[in-house]
Amino acid sequence: MVDKKSFTQHISQQYNEDLEHILNRVMAMGGLVEQQLADALIALVEGDNQRGETVVTGDYKVNAIEVELDEQCTHILARRQPAASDLRLILAVIKAITDLERIGDEGERIGRMALHLLENDRQRGPMSEVEALGGQVKGMLRGALDAFARMDVDQAVRVAQEDLKVDAQYESIMRHLMKHMEQDPQAVPQVMDIMWSARSLERIGDRARNICEYVVYFVRGKDVRHTSYEQMAEEAAGDRR
C-alpha cells in the first residue's frame, strides 16, 4: 500500500480514516476489475459460457464502486479542501477509477464477444495470439494496480512501457486476422468478434498506462500524460523536492 505515514499524520483522525478508506476501496475496485478481465479472457479463449455470463452481469458492481468513490472524493474536496499531496491523491483517485470503470466496460465487451462466439462456430477464429495478448494485458493491469497501491513510480514507468509491446502485439494480431478473413471469408463474423476483443485488450493496455501516469503525478507532482516514455521516465526519476 501507499506509505501509510502519508495518510495517518493528519491532525484530523477522521481525515486519515477517510483517505485510507478511499484507497482501500480503489484497491477493491481494482481487484474486481482484474477478476472481470480474467473471467472475460477465460470465456473468450476457452469458450466458457458461465464465465462470459458472470462478466456481463457483473459489470454493475464495478460501476457502483466508481459512483461510491466519486461521491467520497467529492466529500473530501468539499469538506477538507485538500492541498498538496492530499489534493494530488484525490485527483489521482478520481482519474484512476474512471479508467478502472472503462477497463471494466472493455472486460464486459470481451465477455459479450465470447458469448457471441459461442453462438457461432467459434473454432473458425484463430485464438492463440489473442490469448497471448490477454496475458500480457492482464499482467500490465496487475502491475499498474500494484504501482498505484504502493505509489511506486519506478514500477509505474516499467509497466507503462509495456504498453509498447501490447500495441505491437495488437497490430500483429490485426494483420493476421485480416489475412485470415481473406483466406476464409466464411469466418468473417467470428474473426470480427476476435478483432473487437483484441481492440478491447489494446484499450485496456492504454488505460493501465494511464493509471501508471497518475502514480507519477501523485508522487512527483508532474503531469506526464501525452508525453514520451523517455520523458515519463525522466520525470519519475526526478526528485520533486
Binding site: 499524520q9 498538496a84 494530488r88 523536492r241
Partner: peptide
C-alpha cells in the same frame, strides 16, 4: 505552493499534518 510544495514543512502545514 498549494499543489506541489517543495518543502516537507510546507506540505505538513498546508495539509494539516503534525
Amino acid at each position: 505552493l498549494f499543489t506541489t510544495p517543495y518543502e516537507q514543512k510546507t506540505e505538513d502545514y498546508i495539509t494539516g499534518r503534525y
